[in-house]
Design a protein around this nucleic acid. Structure first.
Lengths: 158, 158
DNA sequence: TTTAGTGCAAAATGTTTGCACCTCT
DNA sequence: AGAGGTGCAAACATTTTGCACTAAA
């Protein structure tokens, strides 16, 4: 259970290593910019927009451009080390791929994003898909919620 | 079960009436353009992009602009007579709101979109949300699938 | 040294808006 | 007559791309 919201040093170095391996295999280069971006992603809460990531990385090296952030994120997704998510608001968000699959519960009152996972639902999905003669390749399951309590409970994680 | 893929005459006139009622209540006007757009949406397969709708409507009146299509769709969503969906591909898709809620199964091989509904999953979602002290206001559940069979089975509906 | 990567600015996309003109009611 | 609607083009927001320059390997 190393991989939840803030992103520990261990998470950072893990992601960094995996990314370097991927780059090596593809005969691509590891660069200072890529390392900074991967590090920022690994340290993020897991639902960062490109803008947020760019802003963060700029505090370390103010010359890094948007294009490099986009290009590096695309590589990370290819490497299956990050996942791209589109919530309703028109901009993509990225998260370091944390081993196990999970889905999202989004509080529309306070904007917080929680993660959840339910084996029973996963099984039912598989069943539905197979019944219709398909193979499940991917899925997205978002629960948009409201907290009635005026002070939204910001408990973290699953 | 009137409301599935192609959109019968009855579906068209139903949606048209509801939209006229909405416009009346809001002191807004019914126009030739709006009627054409609503009709095209009602006749659609239920997952049309703005571009497709615009193209369709243009065959009836070649002067209708994109802006009017966007504005009318926004009204329909406000009226809760249409739903907007964002699948992964960067453009919004719209569907006439067909009474009962349903989710989507998207074949990434042939691009076809099927609908599904599973009460058991709906119940589990509710449970998960309530356990965490929230109220479910909305959800999105998409299953991305592949058909192994080279000729994708295009069976329609649930 | 060679090939890939970077930053910038321009282009591409999808959507929204300002405005002069038009049309329902 | 007058509020609201339309079409167009320009503005926007996000993401992608072309290109000259830089830097890993």
């Amino acid at each position: 259970m190393s991989s939840s919201l803030p992103g520990s040093d261990a998470d950072v170095s893990d992601l960094l290593h995996r990314f370097r391996d991927f780059l090596g295999q593809q005969r691509l280069r590891s660069t200072r910019q890529r390392e900074l971006i991967v590090e920022a992603l690994a340290r993020s809460t897991g639902h960062v927009s490109v803008e947020e990531l760019h802003r963060e990385v700029r505090t370390r090296d103010s010359s890094i451009g948007y294009a490099t952030v986009y290009r590096t994120l695309k590589l990370l997704v290819e490497a299956r080390l990050a996942a791209i998510r589109h919530f309703g608001d028109g901009q993509a968000r990225f998260e370091p791929r944390q081993g196990a699959h999970h889905d999202h519960m989004i509080c529309d009152t306070c904007g917080h994003i929680f993660e959840f996972h339910d084996e029973e639902i996963e099984r039912l999905q598989e069943k539905l898909v197979r019944e219709r003669g398909f193979e499940l390749s991917n899925h997205r399951h978002e629960l948009h919620v409201k907290c009635l309590d005026p002070n939204c409970p910001r408990r973290s994680g699953a």
